[in-house]
Design a protein around this nucleic acid. Structure first.
Lengths: 253, 253
DNA sequence: GCAAAAGTGTTTCCTTTACACCCATGT
DNA sequence: ACATGGGTGTAAAGGAAACACTTTTGC
């Protein structure tokens, strides 16, 4: 039996918090399909290369962040046949969380607030949305918020990360108690930061991954996220929305 | 530049709760590499086929569950170069949650308790572990536990699903209050089920996806602690027989 | 002194937990 | 009657939310 072979790429959703906006690393296409639109950095896997290795290479060579402390994790895989009009490409997306970095080495790369990225090449808007939602969800029950901060940071800086990513306000006092009380989330450095008011204690990331109990984001807004229509197969319910996201229940035949 | 093309497959981790065990659908390899070992059902994508469509097709044709109400969602993608010694295969794994179904159409397929599946072909053990952990996590903050139940079920049946998947004991009274109190998680059917004691209200799945606030699994037990024994369900043979009758109905044309 | 931001204390509310107790059926 | 499992009531413990208040800097 003939086994179809397709191109496999890795696309990156690199998020950071800068200038009060959650922003993603994108580049402007100057050729090919979707010319003139923003696109996520990506690249094809090599034959002897693992997927995480491809992601690291794309981050370094294509995105222009060779030595940046970016937390990378697999997001999900997109394989709709016509997502690239030139050829079939199955793309494994990785999510990266980065602190507010200096400009990338690649000059065509730029940070753009995710709110303004409404039209992207291919299905990159969908991928970006999934990445943003994953990031929002992970702040709830992991210590990954600190991945958006520099090596040393204050509780207030961490809180602003949460506020910007979740687009909500958090009580500074309760937030402080929560994150400093969580086991192994933050480690005091001993030094202080001064900026306007009383100097604040500086912290580094602890070695905890999970935040228990979780810090649930306010869910006052009713479900606005509309799940994309999925052409379902024989009888199975194929819920293709990613972890934690919106309505994905379809009645079974 | 030459773009490498590789085979892309979809592998399924289909989980169910039967006979007091969390079990996965596997088949015994009779040829090729890892001959004699259990393997997950899988298949290669077709050129014009979406990934969810491939998953549904593999579930139907290869796993032998054509009309089963299986909740399918993408799990993650595995692409280590040597994971298949014959050729490079990038595999997109899907997780499926199924009620206690009649035997699959494919006779070589069988349900095996996940605890006994220590040695699997290729990297399928790793995939299975990821699937089990995803299922465990999703019971905490989604209403997916009901995907392990038949169309109509009692609160006690749902509780046994949680107990078996999490390998822990839950207070029946508090569990009852929690799940019946959650918005749109369960919908009363009006009918009752009788089995030994006072008849229980029957429920169907509601349209809620998220369980808020979540039901966090007990995290107090240390890793080596002896798991509390979970007694077998009531008259498992009878319950399975009635399930068989209900589930064997011919699909409506 | 005053503004601004950091951090603590305290009260209220809500959820979870633990468990006593009653309910409805089969034998 | 009694065993069995279904379901409610209730009080205690713990965390979250709201907010008064103190601390420590810059100007």
């Amino acid at each position: 039996m003939e086994v179809p072979r397709v191109a496999v790429s890795v696309d990156l959703v690199i998020l950071t918090v800068r200038e009060s906006h959650l922003s993603a690393l994108v580049w402007r296409r100057h050729a090919g399909p979707h010319r003139g639109l923003w696109a996520l950095p990506g690249g094809f896997i090599r034959l002897e290369e693992d997927l995480p290795a491809t992601a690291a290479r794309v981050l370094s060579e294509r995105a222009g962040l060779p030595d940046a402390p970016v937390h990378l994790e697999q997001l999900r895989t997109y394989g709709y046949p016509d997502r690239d009009p030139r050829q079939r490409v199955v793309s494994v997306a990785y999510l990266g969380l980065a602190p507010d970095l200096p400009a990338p080495d690649q000059p065509q790369m730029s940070w753009q607030p995710v709110g303004g990225l409404t039209e992207l090449a291919f299905d990159h808007h969908h991928i970006l949305q999934d990445g943003v939602e994953r990031a929002r969800a992970k702040l709830e029950y992991t210590s990954l918020g600190a991945a958006f901060c520099r090596d040393e940071f204050t509780v207030a800086e961490l809180r602003r990360v949460y506020e910007i990513v979740w687009d909500t306000r958090l009580d500074p006092r309760n937030f402080h108690r929560k994150v400093t009380g969580a086991q192994r989330f933050l480690v005091e450095t001993g030094s202080m930061s001064s900026s306007g008011g009383r100097p604040a204690q500086l912290y580094r990331r602890g070695d905890a991954d999970l935040l228990h109990p979780p810090m649930l984001r306010p869910r006052t807004r009713s479900a606005g996220a509309v799940a994309p229509e999925i052409p379902d197969g024989p009888a199975a319910v194929v819920a293709d929305a990613s972890l934690l996201v919106g309505a994905n229940r379809t009645p079974v035949a």
